[in-house]
Amino acid sequence: MVPCGTLLFLAEIDRIKRSGVASQRSFSCNYPKARIVEEVLQQVGILDVLGRPSRLAENEFGETVRHWRFATSTTVEGSKLEPLLESLEGKVAAPLTEGLFVGLTEAMTNCAHHAYTDSRGDKLGHAGDLKRWWMFSQEKDGMLAVVFCDLGIGIPRSIVSSGIWNDDLIGRVMTLLGFDARTDSRLIRTALELRKTRTKLSHRGKGLPQILDVVRDQERGFLQIHSNRGLYRFDAPTKAEILKDFNCSIRGTLIQWQLPIPSGRQLGLDLGDNL
């Protein structure tokens, strides 16, 4: 199970359940055959959301499973990052923990301001409780993965519809970047560039580049932003940017940071506001 796909899966089910359109029996599952899979599903709340009672003792979970943690909210809550940041102290340089705090809280702020401004197209609407973000962290093989997602309109739609940048400016920045046709991946890359620029309302839209700042100076790791049909990836060691477009849209935004962690101590996020 990879963190980004697992988070998206959980977020979609959570959104449907919170919307009230599904009955309690709409989702179900059997317990997995492999114990480690059951441990993970229990740890991140998927068994619960699928209506299966937790039956394993958490203190017996494997070392790798204990490092999966989950958080969700509808507001910008930096305190939810404290257990993660605390566990990183003394293991990584202070600018990295600061960068993670800033990158994640700016992602939460972007979610609050831009993600749910229009219909997502799933007919569920955006009642207060559905304007939500979800997050996982996982430590594995000396790397920390932090995944953050919302199920909103996606960056490619929001930069066009937000009204912060006019279409002419978007077109000119795309030309400067060497892009001709508009694809979602190119619009994500353009959004990173646009948010550095001054606009008529310069107090809006400065957050997104700080998401990239977390990995910019790292020797290992990457940042990946998957929004609607597009994917943007910044590879820290090579500083290469990769753009890719898919046939299907995830209808939302999934941001993943992967960063090196020198030792294998337990890392985690607040489990408050659980499913």
Partner: peptide
């Protein structure tokens, strides 16, 4: 104020 200042508007959170 807060060790975790974050967000822009009051509606974003209590430490905006």
């Amino acid at each position: 104020f807060s060790r975790h200042p974050a967000g822009r508007y009051k509606t974003d959170g209590e430490f905006s």
